[in-house]
Design a protein around this nucleic acid. Structure first.
Lengths: 128, 128
DNA sequence: CTAGAGTTTGACACTGGTGTCAAGGTCAAG
DNA sequence: CTTGACCTTGACACCAGTGTCAAACTCTAG
């Protein structure tokens, strides 16, 4: 599939897809035209990247995270201690974000319930 | 307490504290000097704000979220339907971030375990 | 063959969150 | 009273993530 379709399916603009690639977060191969071509896998990847970026993870780290995921997938337990340490460190940052967001989520949810607007909640995955 | 101390206790630079105030995320009253003065409550508040911003929530929304929290705290169930709708919408964004971050967290954790670096995990709250 | 839609690269611009610096006020210690 | 640490505001600057636009190319449909 070409970049337009990928963009449509992920909701991420072509511009950004190219940007992510430029940052080394994505690898696309090229058709004879020079057009980038993508597979199904790329859809997931782009979603993932965009999600992380949206969640405040700088692209530089997104790369580290996803590289780790890839390595895990490939059953490639090659991991120099130094990289592991970096990951561990990033992990605490990620956890902190999760905690903070979770707290907000819960408060919002409680608040909506308290103000009798639970109806608006049907799309979020039930309190725990 | 003055801004310096607040900064020291939250790890957020004075510059940013002022910035947050300017964005309406914080309210500080002033001593006769003109110096901003803060209470214990502000420490928590600043932590919260910084956490959310770090987690990719734009200040404009942080305001909405925290205002809701405040309202909830004050047992002030005054909530025009429109605001509630906005909150509900923001809620799905927050949840999306949480999901994405959680997935990353888990993968990193699994990866570290798989590569025999569990030792580095002692500071994260145990895999569920 | 032509038109129109989609692609490529590259440039410019904007926004939001931050850092840093400058010029001047406040205050406590010596 | 002077000095040094801390505060005030305001400006300038930077980076990352995005949008948008332009010029040129490719392809498909008519």
């Amino acid at each position: 599939m070409k970049i337009g379709e990928l963009a449509a399916r992920t909701g991420v603009s072509p511009r950004l897809i190219r940007y992510y690639e430029q940052q080394g977060l994505l690898v696309a191969d090229r058709a004879a035209n020079g057009y980038r071509t993508y597979t199904e896998q790329h859809v997931e990847r782009v979603d993932r990247v965009a999600g992380l970026v949206q969640a405040g993870v700088p692209t530089r780290l997104v790369k580290v995270l996803l590289d780790a995921e890839d390595a895990a997938e490939r059953k490639d337990p090659t991991c120099p201690r130094e990289v592991a340490a970096q990951l561990a460190e990033e992990l605490v940052g990620v956890q902190a974000r999760i905690d903070c967001l979770t707290k907000s989520r819960d408060t919002i949810r409680d608040f909506l319930v308290a103000t009798q607007h639970e109806i608006l909640l049907q799309d979020t995955p039930v309190p725990r």
